[in-house]
């Protein structure tokens, strides 16, 4: 118990008081194999160190993996999903790498291994869903993705504009049928009157992207990426009192204002399927 922190409504908030709170896996891809045609990501180690420190402060067991190929990324995620999380309240995955566009209606985009082969974000999230990782069922699963392309100056990359193309219904493995039941992740979604998705809804998952598909993501070789710098600062200043989603709104505002001064725009995106507020428990 820390000093004087007022939690508004514990019924509405995820339980986050396990100690430690959960695992945090950081995959930091900096040095890419020559045949991948991807540049090394100078400055990423600064991002990695910041987030390692930050999530340790937030009471997570942090593991860092550096320069992983696609298969190794999958292996690490599988290993994480096989762990027993029943004593923990949360799980965090952070990916620092190059990225590319992949269409998906919930979690678009993909992250590269150092071999130039990518893993779609949707697959990354699937490793920890209720089906593949029962001990995280009903618990918040957070994904932070700093993904940029390679550029001559190692600063960023302009992704080709998103093309609007018709879907033939088979663009991903969730749309090949039209199930009309919305029951999926058991625990949730039983009492809302909203329009309901006719596909199983991912619950308790939040993906925070450094940038929307089709937008640039900036990294500076000396100070790290805009997104991670901002995320780290916002977490430092506000994690004790403010919920995660509100903090991500602060990150979005700050990064987009920052980028608005430059030639290109960067707008982080949060794709949020959490059901409750999330307050980190900060160390005192």
């Amino acid at each position: 118990p820390g000093p004087g922190r007022v939690r508004r409504d514990s019924l509405q908030g995820y339980k986050m008081d396990a100690s430690p709170c959960g695992y945090c896996l950081i995959i930091n891809n900096m040095e890419f194999e020559p045949h991948s045609m991807l540049k090394n990501r100078k400055g990423s180690n600064i991002d990695c160190e910041k987030l390692e420190r930050r999530f340790k402060t937030l009471n997570f067991v942090v593991e860092v993996r550096t320069n992983l190929r696609q298969k190794q990324i999958k292996h690490e995620l599988l290993t994480l999903s096989k762990k027993d999380h029943s004593q923990y309240d949360c799980c965090v995955v952070i990916m620092l790498s190059h990225g590319t566009e992949v269409n998906h209606n919930r979690f678009p985009g993909a992250v590269y291994g150092v071999d130039g082969q990518y893993v779609p974000v949707q697959h990354i999230t699937n490793y920890l869903n209720g089906q593949h990782c029962p001990s995280l069922q009903g618990k918040p699963k957070l994904f932070f993705i700093q993904a940029c392309g390679g550029d001559e100056r190692d600063m960023g990359f302009e992704v080709s504009p998103d093309e609007v193309e018709p879907s033939s219904g088979g663009m991903d493995d969730q749309t090949d049928a039209i199930p009309m039941s919305s029951s999926s992740d058991s625990l949730s979604m039983s009492d809302e009157p909203d329009a309901r998705p006719t596909l199983p809804t991912p619950s308790d998952i939040l993906v925070s992207y450094s940038t929307f598909p089709g937008y640039v993501s900036w990294r500076e070789t000396q100070s790290g990426s805009w997104y991670v710098q901002t995320l780290d600062c916002i977490l430092e200043e506000n994690a004790a009192t403010v919920d995660l989603v509100t903090m991500l709104m602060m990150v979005n505002n700050e990064v987009s204002q920052n980028s608005a001064k430059g030639l290109y725009k960067q707008m982080p995106g949060s794709f949020n399927f959490l059901r409750k507020l999330l307050y980190f428990r900060t160390q005192t």
Binding site: N105, S167, P197, L199, P213
Partner: peptide
């Protein structure tokens, strides 16, 4: 949705189609 394939049912009269689209299928391009 013709583009992302995302489906929705159980609509309430006060709901906004774009808002529901964004809520459930935020990745739709």
């Amino acid at each position: 949705c013709f583009h992302c394939g995302g489906g929705l049912n159980n609509w309430q009269p006060e709901e906004d189609p774009w808002v529901e689209h964004a809520k459930h299928y935020p990745g739709c391009s």
